[in-house]
Design a binder for these strands. Structure first.
Lengths: 150, 150
DNA sequence: TTCGCTGCAAAGGGTTTGCATATTG
DNA sequence: CAATATGCAAACCCTTTGCAGCGAA
């Protein structure tokens, strides 16, 4: 469970510093299920600290990912999405398109958490090629309610 | 099945031109199971046409993907990998690390085809969030033989 | 001859990095 | 006060684009 204050405490324990920027980024992530991009977080935080730098957001997110407080999800060539939920779970992605303000088609990209895991999926020995299997990730694809009508 | 000459023929039918560059890129992909990057293909082709441009390789790969002769696989933040096998299948990715020439650790990234598909995986109605489910992609993770010892 | 294609170089988007300054503990 | 963070701008990497010249049909 991603709790901003827990992470602040961990920072102090490790001799790192709790800055207003960091705390705000943590708070912006807390409980979020929308899988925001770095840019999304940047915009959230700017409402409070207007001249925070995007680089700071990137650095802070990178730390969280490396200390396993945050999951980084990379689908297709899109920018990374971040998920404060780090227990094993799957995702469901919308492959529909929205119409942009200039009439161009933009991938919707909505992403939902799916709690189900599939620990029993396996690979036949002859297809394993000698690999030691560790796990799997399932990405479901579909059309979100908004994209089914367009 | 990805056959270079078939694709050349399709080009002609569509009023496009069969150039030595294109034909060579097609041939470089034919039957390849290593999931090469654009750079890999570029290097292959340069052995024959030393001053082919990387841009030409990218443009040609993009066309193949858009005409569904080629699958583009994007895992993590790595550069795109291309797969001439376009029937539905899964992949098995090595998450180990190699030691580079300067002693740095580089993700191995070896990628294998897995023929099995999982058309029956489903999502519970309450987790569907109203999405219309189309399919799924499974990525298996493990350590390839070379990475199990390091 | 006519399009379509190539190679080049420049631009693009997302992300990271170096560094001088500012801030935390 | 020392060490760590910040903001800025520049650098990076992969990929795409614009364009003048070239080559396939």
């Amino acid at each position: 469970m991603f709790i901003a204050e827990d992470i602040c405490q961990k920072l102090r324990e490790n001799g790192k510093k709790v800055t207003p920027q960091r705390r705000l980024i943590y708070k912006a992530l807390e409980g979020k299920t929308t899988h925001p991009t770095a840019e999304d977080i940047y915009n959230d935080v700017r409402a409070v600290i207007p001249d925070i730098s995007l680089a700071t957001v990137y650095k802070t997110l990178r730390e969280l990912v490396e200390s396993r407080f945050l999951l980084e999800i990379q689908v297709d060539g899109d920018s990374s999405r971040f998920d404060p939920r780090t227990d094993p779970h799957s995702h469901l992605k919308c492959i529909g398109f929205k119409v942009g303000t200039n009439g161009e088609y933009l991938p919707c990209g909505r992403l939902e958490d799916i709690s189900t895991t599939y620990p029993t999926l396996h690979v036949s020995p002859e297809e394993l090629h000698g690999y030691k299997l560790i796990g799997n990730e399932v990405m479901f694809l579909g059309y979100c309610p908004a994209c089914q009508n367009s």
